[in-house]
Design a protein around this nucleic acid. Structure first.
Lengths: 198, 198
DNA sequence: GCATTAGTTGACTGGTCGGACAAATACAAA
DNA sequence: TTTGTATTTGTCCGACCAGTCAACTAATGC
């Protein structure tokens, strides 16, 4: 967690990222958020216009963190595209497994969770999640492109394939969460390969 | 909606099924639920021990309805397994499209929504969703079995394939919901075929 | 020094939440 | 008709909700 002692604004954002992931939007109260961040509520509303405003900002912050901690290292490597996708599966499984071990909770995708919860409730949050989904797909599409160039998969509409690989990720994460069983996510590699070549 | 004038218990359950789908668990208050069902709150707590208790019962009720309105007709037909899966895609798209047209909301999967929202909050609800997920997979697996017997797909672990076809459904529904774009679900047929044969 | 601003505090609001409950009523069986 | 039970009603509750606000303090620029 590390807490990044710098600044109330940043600490608030940081706390929000963790709390929204663990407790969802509607399950997180501004009071609790402030308590965990060691801040009084007045300060909260000095930096953010509303709870929804913070959530939208937290989505962007979470993606910035995820991108540099997960996506950039994997997709910036010189491995083949399909190998990169398999490493992504392993890395996500590792993260989910860590949460399951430390807190007993399979949290699933922080973006997917908020997206499903808020898509029909708050337009700004919906758009933030949609943007982050698109960035996920961009990375996957680039990997498919690379795999195509290496003749690992046949040519075709890589953008569409990437979307469906991502759908497989999200769906499997949901199933694993509902079943509290990491195996349901862990075992998608073969299907990812199939969709990538479809 | 039809309202099935029979009995307070049933009307409550019916209202819950619709309201939980449209507004989620935490977004639905007992007060509003009672108002829409034309019932006083005391009656609510005569039939259900808690809001979570009603939700769990509503999940079962919703599945009973979905099974007979969607799954039984499609998977009871004498079509081939793969054709059945394509008909399921069309039918789900039709239902989601109807909601989008009438209420402007892409609601997604009523079971997946509740599962993601409540898996780490209420154990009874988590289990109810898990059971319903399994029933979905049973139907898909039977279709794959049938497709295997027809030599439409190669032999293999149909149970695992069914889970991943289902994951693809759930993930694509989520993406369509977040993007408010039915096309993201509608276009999964090719990937479903690929996963079915993986 | 002095003024301006940025940040912080704690007390407060009106509203809603899930749930409790006693009293009233409807409906059975005897 | 009486007794017991199932259902319904309206009222009430303490907890919590997101958000407000005026007062206070710390930092900054001149």
């Amino acid at each position: 967690m590390a807490d990044a002692e710098r600044g109330t604004h940043e600490r608030l954002l940081n706390t929000a990222v963790h709390l929204l992931w663990e407790r969802s939007y509607q399950g997180t109260s501004v009071d609790e958020l402030c308590r965990k961040a060691g801040i009084r509520k007045g300060s909260f509303y000095h930096f953010f216009r509303s709870k929804a405003d913070l959530a939208a900002a937290a989505i962007d912050a979470a993606w910035r963190h995820t991108e540099q901690a997960v996506f950039a290292p994997i997709f910036g490597s010189d491995e083949g595209g399909m190998a990169q996708l398999e490493r992504l599966i392993d890395r996500v499984d590792e993260i989910q497994g860590a949460n399951l071990k430390s807190r007993g909770l399979y949290l699933g995708c922080p973006f997917g969770n908020l997206g499903q919860e808020m898509a029909n409730v708050d337009e700004a949050i919906r758009q933030a999640v949609q943007r982050v989904f698109a960035r996920h797909c961009d990375y996957i599409e680039a990997a498919l492109q690379r795999a195509g160039e290496d003749r690992d998969i046949p040519p075709g509409d890589m953008h569409r394939r990437a979307e469906q690989v991502f759908a497989l990720f999200e769906g499997a994460l949901l199933m694993a969460k509902v079943a509290k069983d990491p195996a349901l996510f862990r075992g998608i590699a073969a299907s990812v390969r199939a969709v990538a070549a479809a």
